[in-house]
């Protein structure tokens, strides 16, 4: 296999040392299709990601200080690749995301299987810098890339019976040996859900990248959801199935512990997790839990109306 390099650049200038010192491993981890692409060697620490060009800056972005790529790729909750935060970076490194299809089915006018290429071209890619708040009390700021999930849903046309959207993560024990109830305490495949009006909200992002490039595997490659006003576990990773349904779908953490993780799971300083207070949060990498949690993670102006008249303590 021949890798062409630009004449005026040397590998050492474009490639992190950790990559070229592990060339064999790196090659094994890069799908052939990506090798043929123009932007092969990303500046990101050993990640087999490719650059996403022509991004539109979104007005929905926050101007808060962003976390670093290193932080966002080495501190992950992705239980299929291990329950410790540093494990997904190691165990997802060779996760195969090409070819990839997302099946959209259920209560829709046009059932359809999307290839990743089709998903990348369905709507203009935007960079959206969102706050991301984990139920574990930490938060980060990430420059995601994608477009509103509503674009995809409109492409298939929900029927009048569709009331909820159910999502499912890829599940493959060969690639995800930790993804069993015995090894990580959850039922698989990982499933999540939104009410249709939540899913149609412009803030709900169908995400294909971050930091200007495609998603690294540990962050949910190749396509994930980002719902910034809800706790992080609602933002399901590595989606293979989206089904429009008539009633509230089961969700993984709710199955694991209904008392602690509700279907809605909106960020809310006034509704504590039964085992810890949600009043404050730690904005990583700060070591202090000293930042007041904002209702709906600061997106209340946009989304509070979705829950008008609802008791948020009951519908946690």
């Amino acid at each position: 296999m021949l890798i062409k390099k630009p004449a005026d650049l040397r590998y050492s200038e474009t490639t992190p040392k950790s990559v070229y010192m592990n060339r064999r491993k790196f090659l094994a981890s890069v799908p052939a299709a990506a090798l043929a692409g123009r932007e092969l060697l990303s500046p990101s620490r050993g990640l087999a990601t490719t650059k996403l060009p022509d991004l539109v800056k979104s007005p929905l972005s926050t101007d808060e200080k962003q976390n670093t790529l290193d932080q966002v790729t080495h501190y992950n909750n992705y239980y299929e690749f291990g329950t410790q935060k540093d494990q997904p970076a190691k165990y997802a490194a060779n996760f195969k995301t090409d070819p990839w299809t997302v099946s959209v089915e259920g209560e829709v006018e046009k059932k359809r299987k999307f290839s990743m290429d089709e998903i990348l071209k369905l709507a203009p890619l935007e960079e959206r810098i969102y706050r991301h708040r984990c139920v574990e009390r930490w938060s980060i700021v990430v420059p995601w890339i994608g477009y509103s999930l509503s674009a995809l849903l409109k492409a298939v046309g929900p029927t009048s019976k569709a009331k909820y959207v159910a999502f499912e993560t890829y599940w493959d024990l060969k690639q995800m040996p930790m993804a069993t109830p015995e090894r990580s305490g959850l039922q698989y495949p990982y499933v999540e859900g939104l009410r249709l009006d939540e899913a149609m909200h412009p803030l709900a992002l169908l995400c294909v990248g971050m930091f200007g490039e495609t998603l690294p595997p540990q962050d949910g490659a190749p396509v994930r959801l980002v719902v910034p006003w809800k706790y992080g576990f609602k933002s399901i990773k590595s989606i293979v199935k989206i089904k429009l349904v008539t009633s509230e779908p089961p969700t993984t953490w709710n199955i694991s512990n209904a008392h602690e993780y509700g279907f809605y799971s909106n960020v809310n300083p006034n509704v504590d997790h039964p085992r810890w207070s949600q009043a404050k949060e730690t904005r990583l990498p700060s070591p202090f839990a000293n930042r007041p949690t904002q209702i709906f993670n600061g997106y209340g102006d946009q989304v509070a109306s979705l829950y008008a008249g609802m008791d948020l303590k009951k519908n946690y």
Partner: peptide, 16 residues
């Protein structure tokens, strides 16, 4: 101290 704690993963509070 904050820089030192920063060396202990992205979430030093949790790590320590």
């Amino acid at each position: 101290i904050e820089d030192a704690l920063g060396n202990l993963t992205a979430n030093p509070l949790e790590y320590v």
